[in-house]
Amino acid sequence: MSTRISMTVNGKAVSAEVEERTLLAAFLREHLRLTGTHVGCDTGHCGACTVLLDGKAVKSCNMLAAQAQGANVTTIEGLAAADGEMHPMQVAFKASHGLQCGFCTPGMVLSAVELAGKLKNPSEAQIREALDGNYCRCTGYHNIVKAVQTGLANMG
């Protein structure tokens, strides 16, 4: 069974006929070829697939593409400015060496961006707690925490 879905992804209107059981992550990766959204577990634990859905960080492997009908989705490909200038959170991750293999990074960065609307000048403990939905196996989180602190400060 297929269904027609339409949404805005990274500022562009997209529409496609997909199998009903298609997950949002698969829709982004397979149909739109936005492969920056990664799937690390397909059970909602690892957070690599995190995207912003109407500004809210969601795990795109844990919802159907059809559930994003009409929504405004931002993936990691849509975070930098049109001229290629990276978002302050991306800059902070690079400056703080907040990534190694890069696989968890898109979800980690988007989860961190969402924090800006939630926490003002968060403590290290608050950041660690807020990143609870995103696994990283490379960095031990040390530099991710630093990156998020810097990124949030620079987002103003």
């Binding site: 492969t35 920056g36 990691i76």
Partner: peptide
């Protein structure tokens, strides 16, 4: 880092 941070990595 730039490619990993902008979704341009190729796994």
């Amino acid at each position: 880092d730039r490619r990993f941070l902008t979704g341009a990595g190729q796994y």
